[in-house]
Computed example of a mutant assay.
Amino acid sequence: MEQTEKVVNANTSFRVKTRRGLLTPKNVPYFFIGPAFLLIMIFTVYPVISSFILSFQEVRGVEKSFVGLANYTRLFQDPIFYKSLLNTFQILIVQVPIMLLLSLLIAVGLHSSMLKGKAFFRISYFMPAITALVAASIVFMILLDENFGLVNYFLSLFGVNSIPWLTTPFWAKVSVILVMTWRWAGYNMVIFLAGLQNIPSDLYEAASIDGASKVKQFFMITIPQLKPVFIFTVVMSTIGTLQLFDEPFILTGGGPNNATMTITVYLYQAGFKFFDFGYASAIAYVLVIITAIISWIQMKLVGDE
């Protein structure tokens, strides 16, 4: 009995001390989120603020000097920046619609009740999204080689002349678009497939009773019901394309003749090839502003409350 009273008194004393100290019931959640918050501040917030300040500075070795808006003024007078911006938008305008249309068609096909082995096909189409991009790009470099590539070999069987996939401006852009579509079509297919599975089957049954064909059902039921999915995939694909780096950097290095030089490839070259970190930071923040504006316009055009 005495031992029980001692335990109760000890617990009561601990609760009193706890409430008077830092570890109060109100503060307990902050102890759990504290480490994550600290990591975010160190590895996200601090670099963002630091790079913003750096965009107003000139870096020479270890010395930094404030130059005001000189980096931004130089940026808007730089023909290579405008070239990289044009290349990025050309790829965006062509690749995103093709990829999303292909993703939608694949998702509709895999959603069909007539298809057997759905799990196998879903995994197969999604695999490129989890494949190491460097390895995949190297494989595509071998496949698209002008002289010894497997793609040109198969085309030659049909009498098509060898195509300089990676050495001419037009075909280099086509190559980047092909690799991007191969990689991300399956990823967006999964998102569309999730949207299709959430459409009530009653809608299709009612449409069938009213005599609507499969094509009419697709345009009158499937497409409107997938509007939120379209908004999400369009915005995310646009942001991803504006940040396009890996494919052009590995496949062509931004060439030939800057034909595949995207904004992020140019940013990388300015920062880590020429060590002009102030100018690279200015490019990064202009890219952030462009991405935010385009995303806002897209949400206003196709989004709703």
Rank of each mutant, 00 (worst) to 15 (best):
G253C: 10
I221F: 14
F219Y: 14
G254M: 12
A207V: 04
T252K: 02
L226G: 00
Q269K: 11
F218P: 11
F218A: 05
G254C: 13
V265D: 02
M261E: 14
I209Y: 01
F249Q: 13
I231M: 15
Q269E: 12
F232C: 08
P224E: 07
I239W: 06
Q225P: 02
F272D: 06
S213C: 13
K214R: 15
P224D: 10
L267M: 15
I263L: 15
V235A: 04
K214H: 13
G254R: 04
Y204W: 07
F272C: 07
G255A: 03
G271R: 04
M220R: 13
F218S: 04
S213V: 14
L267S: 01
V265S: 03
T260C: 08
F249D: 10
V229T: 15
A206L: 03
T260D: 11
V234I: 15
T222Q: 01
V265C: 08
L203D: 03
P224A: 04
Q269Y: 07
E247G: 00
I231Q: 13
A207C: 07
D246W: 10
A270C: 08
L251S: 02
K227S: 11
Q269M: 13
P256Y: 12
A270T: 13
D202G: 01
Y268I: 08
I231H: 01
G254D: 11
E205G: 00
K227L: 13
V234W: 06
G255L: 04
T222W: 02
Q225R: 08
I221H: 03
A206Q: 03
F249G: 05
Q243H: 13
T252N: 08
S208M: 12
I239H: 01
P256C: 14
E205L: 03
G240K: 09
L244I: 10
D246Q: 09
L242A: 06
Y204M: 05
M220N: 11
F230I: 06
T260W: 11
L203W: 12
L267C: 06
F218L: 09
E205D: 15
I231D: 08
P256L: 13
N257G: 15
P256S: 13
T252H: 10
S208G: 02
V235E: 09
V234P: 01
F232P: 04
A212H: 07
G271E: 06
A259N: 05
S237W: 01
S237N: 03
T252L: 02
I223R: 12
L251W: 09
T241Y: 09
F245L: 15
G253R: 06
L251I: 11
L226R: 02
T222E: 07
I223H: 05
A270I: 06
I223V: 14
V235G: 00
Q243S: 15
F230G: 00
P248W: 10
F245M: 14
E205Y: 00
I231W: 07
G255I: 09
M261A: 08
V265I: 11
S213E: 07
Q217A: 10
G253Y: 13
G211H: 01
P256A: 08
P228G: 03
Q243M: 14
I263F: 07
F219P: 09
L203S: 01
T233E: 05
T264D: 14
D246P: 09
P256I: 11
L242M: 15
T252R: 02
S237G: 03
L226H: 03
F230P: 04
G255V: 10
